[in-house]
């Protein structure tokens, strides 16, 4: 009897611990979002918000939880321009693992309100001119440290932030497409016509870190999912990949996390051990996206 009690007790203790662990995770993410919650005091009026999986729902302002997207444009604009202090985001793409599943492209297009022909990330079939073989190469914005697109923008609509991310403010973009012409990686795409489902997004507040809602006549491109990074989450494409192609992390910490396995490794070791390279380093653009070489045969 006594013994049985003890066992029960210890069991309960585990469960308690488990509960505490769970609670602390929630608290942690709430802390991350604390900065976003000041604009939520007003009540009575309903707003349309995007949920984490990018569905539109209508909620009362008072019921907005820290995880919900905030509705204050000036706050979002300021936040988007400033970036996250102390970070320098990098991506590593392991070409040997890419099997052209295209889950990254799908996740990206649905998150960023993109039409099927618009790509923030595009999986290309690359030919090896010497071996006559081909491999799959996902190509995003390279978030260059010397970005040609930002240099040429006449109105400071595309800009580089302190955390290394190159973003677009589509509230300011005049649609001259100089950045599209200047980008050697063809990473930029343009809203030639009314964006997809624009009527559904009509009342959504513009968040430049997500670049949604898209606007006709403005440029859009990969934002390294800056909105997700703020919540401590990996980018949409990175977490959607089923094959462990992407690593993403902070260069300052020298740690990158695989989006599929969630394994965190040292960036410098990963790059060194796998003979990593960047795309067209001779152009001097200094990309923040590294590639690990493909295997000889296509996976």
């Amino acid at each position: 009897m006594n013994m049985a009690n003890k066992t029960d007790k210890s069991r309960r203790r585990f469960l308690q611990k488990l509960g505490i662990a769970g609670a602390s995770t929630v608290a942690g993410s709430a802390l991350l979002l604390q900065g976003c919650s000041d604009s939520n005091k007003a009540s009575g009026n309903k707003v349309k918000v995007l949920t984490a999986d990018n569905k539109l729902v209508e909620v009362d302002v008072a019921h907005l939880k820290p995880g919900d997207k905030i509705q204050d444009l000036s706050y979002l604009q300021k936040r988007g321009r400033e970036g996250i202090p102390g970070k320098k985001f990098v991506m590593v793409v392991d070409l040997a693992k890419c099997k052209n599943a295209r889950k990254c492209m799908k996740a990206c297009q649905s998150a960023h309100q993109l039409k099927p022909e618009m790509h923030h990330i595009n999986v290309l079939e690359m030919e090896d001119p010497v071996k006559k073989t081909s491999y799959w190469m996902p190509k995003t914005c390279q978030h260059c440290d010397n970005p040609p697109c930002v240099s040429v923008c006449p109105v400071d609509a595309t800009f580089k932030r302190q955390d290394g991310i190159v973003l677009i403010d589509n509230e300011r973009c005049i649609g001259c497409r100089f950045c599209v012409a200047a980008c050697p990686y063809s990473a930029r795409t343009f809203n030639w016509t009314e964006p997809k489902n624009s009527d559904q997004y009509a009342e959504v507040t513009y968040d430049m870190e997500l670049n949604v809602p898209q606007k006709k006549g403005t440029v859009t491109k990969c934002a390294f999912s800056a909105d997700r990074l703020r919540e401590g989450k990996l980018p949409y494409c990175v977490s959607a990949c089923p094959n462990g192609v992407y690593y993403f992390g902070d260069q300052n910490e020298d740690l990158v996390t695989n989006g599929t396995t969630k394994k965190t490794v040292r960036l410098s070791h990963l790059l060194e051990e796998n003979a990593a390279y960047t795309l067209m380093p001779e152009l001097g653009t200094q990309p923040s996206v590294y590639y690990l070489p493909p295997r000889e045969d296509k996976g």
């Binding site: 970070k87 990074l229 401590g232 989450k233 990996l234 993403f248 992390g249 902070d250 910490e253 740690l255 990158v256 996390t257 695989n258 969630k262 394994k263 965190t264 490794v265 040292r266």
Partner: peptide, 10 residues
């Protein structure tokens, strides 16, 4: 582990 931004490094 060292806690990184997106995961823990062993």
């Amino acid at each position: 582990y060292v806690m990184g931004t997106f995961g823990k490094h062993l």
